[in-house]
Measured scan of single mutants.
Amino acid sequence: DRHTIHIGDITIHLEGFSEEELKLAEELIKRGIHLEEVKRILEELYR
């Protein structure tokens, strides 16, 4: 499954994450956390 996060003019595609995980990812990215770090956090929390 493919999910999309929109932040301003930026569109990020993250596959294989639930709606809850994507909301967390979006919040972290909006707070300035680097995408690679966001992915690592999600994997630690949900895998």
Rank of each mutant, 00 (worst) to 15 (best):
L24S: 05
G16T: 11
R31M: 11
Y46S: 04
E27W: 14
L28H: 01
H6F: 06
H13N: 07
L14S: 03
E43I: 11
R31Y: 13
L24C: 04
L42V: 09
I10F: 13
I10R: 03
Y46K: 11
E44C: 04
D9M: 11
H34Q: 13
L42S: 00
E21M: 14
L28M: 12
Y46L: 15
L22A: 09
H34E: 10
L22D: 01
F17T: 05
E19M: 14
E19D: 13
H13L: 10
D9T: 06
R40G: 03
L22Q: 08
E37S: 03
D1E: 03
H6V: 15
E36R: 04
G8V: 08
E43R: 01
R47T: 15
R40S: 07
E36T: 08
G32C: 07
H13R: 09
E37P: 00
E43Y: 14
G16N: 10
D1C: 02
E15T: 13
L14R: 01
H34N: 12
E37M: 08
E26T: 11
L22Y: 13
Y46I: 15
H3R: 00
E27I: 11
G32F: 15
Y46C: 15
G16E: 07
L35S: 03
K39H: 07
E19N: 08
G16C: 04
E21Q: 06
L45I: 15
G8H: 08
L35I: 13
D9V: 12
D1P: 01
D1F: 01
K23L: 10
F17V: 04
H13D: 12
V38M: 04
E43L: 07
I41T: 02
E43S: 02
E44S: 01
L28D: 00
I7K: 05
R47K: 15
E44L: 05
E26W: 14
I12G: 04
K30A: 12
L22M: 10
R31A: 14
I29L: 14
E26D: 08
H34K: 14
I29D: 00
E19I: 12
F17E: 03
L35C: 03
L45Q: 02
D1S: 01
E20Q: 11
R2T: 14
R2P: 15
R31F: 13
I5K: 00
K30S: 10
A25F: 14
H34C: 04
D1L: 02
R2A: 14
L28S: 00
R31V: 11
K39F: 14
V38P: 00
E26P: 01
D9C: 04
E27R: 08
E20T: 09
K39Y: 14
G16A: 07
D9G: 11
L42M: 06
V38W: 05
E27C: 03
I12D: 04
E44A: 07
E43K: 02
F17P: 03
R2V: 15
Y46Q: 13
H6E: 11
Y46H: 12
R31Q: 14
I33G: 02
V38R: 00
I41G: 01
E20H: 03
L28E: 00
L42P: 00
R47H: 15
L14F: 13
R47L: 15
S18W: 08
L14W: 05
A25K: 02
L28T: 01
H6S: 08
I12N: 05
A25L: 13
H6P: 03
D1Q: 01
I12P: 02
E15S: 12
E36I: 09
G32Y: 12
L24A: 05
L42D: 00
S18K: 07
E21G: 12
R40L: 08
D1M: 00
H6L: 11
I7L: 10
E20C: 13
E19A: 11
L35E: 06
Y46R: 15
A25D: 00
G8E: 08
K30F: 14
T11R: 05
G16P: 02
T11M: 13
R31D: 08
K39L: 15
L45K: 00
I12K: 05
G8Y: 08
E43C: 07
K30V: 12
G8M: 09
